[in-house]
C-alpha cells in the first residue's frame, strides 16, 4: 500500500516544530521582540494562498467573490510582510555593541 502524501506533509510539519523548538531556544532573550516581529512577517507567507485565491478562475473578466477575498488577503498579508520585515530591520539596526575606547 502506498503512503498517503498527507503523511509526508505531516512529517515535514512535525520536524519543523522540532527545528523551531531548538532554533527559538537559541534566540537571545534581548532579541525576543524582533523575534516576534520577524515570525509575524514570515507567517505572512500565507500570501501564497491569497495569490492563488485571487487569480482563481483564469481569464474570466468578472471577479468572483472568492477572488475578492483573495485580493483582500493579499492586501493584509503584504501590509504584514513589508511592515514586519522593515520594523524588524529598524529594531535590529539599533542593537549596537559598546564602542571600544
Amino acid at each position: 500500500m502506498e503512503i498517503d502524501p498527507f503523511i509526508f506533509r505531516l512529517s515535514i510539519f512535525v520536524l519543523s516544530i522540532f527545528i523551531g523548538y531548538y532554533v527559538v531556544w537559541s534566540v537571545t532573550p534581548s532579541l525576543h521582540t524582533p523575534l516576534m516581529s520577524i515570525t509575524n512577517a514570515i507567517s505572512s507567507v500565507i500570501i501564497v494562498g491569497a495569490i492563488i485565491a485571487s487569480l482563481a478562475g483564469g481569464n474570466n473578466s468578472n471577479f468572483e467573490i472568492s477572488n475578492i477575498f483573495g485580493f483582500f488577503a493579499i492586501l493584509l498579508a503584504s501590509i504584514n510582510i513589508f511592515g514586519g520585515f522593515l520594523v524588524t530591520q529598524r529594531m535590529l539596526q539599533m542593537y549596537k555593541k559598546k564602542k571600544k575606547k
Binding site: F6, R9, I12, F13, Y21, T39, V45, V48, G49, I52
Partner: peptide, 27 residues
C-alpha cells in the same frame, strides 16, 4: 498558517507555520 499550508499542500507555509507556532509557544 500551518493549517492553510496543509490545505494548499504548500511546504513553505507548513514549515513557517510550525516555526512560528513553536516560537510563540516557547515565548
Amino acid at each position: 498558517a500551518a493549517g492553510i499550508g496543509f490545505t494548499l499542500e504548500n511546504t513553505a507555509l507548513i514549515i513557517t507555520g510550525a516555526l512560528v507556532g513553536s516560537s510563540g509557544a516557547i515565548l
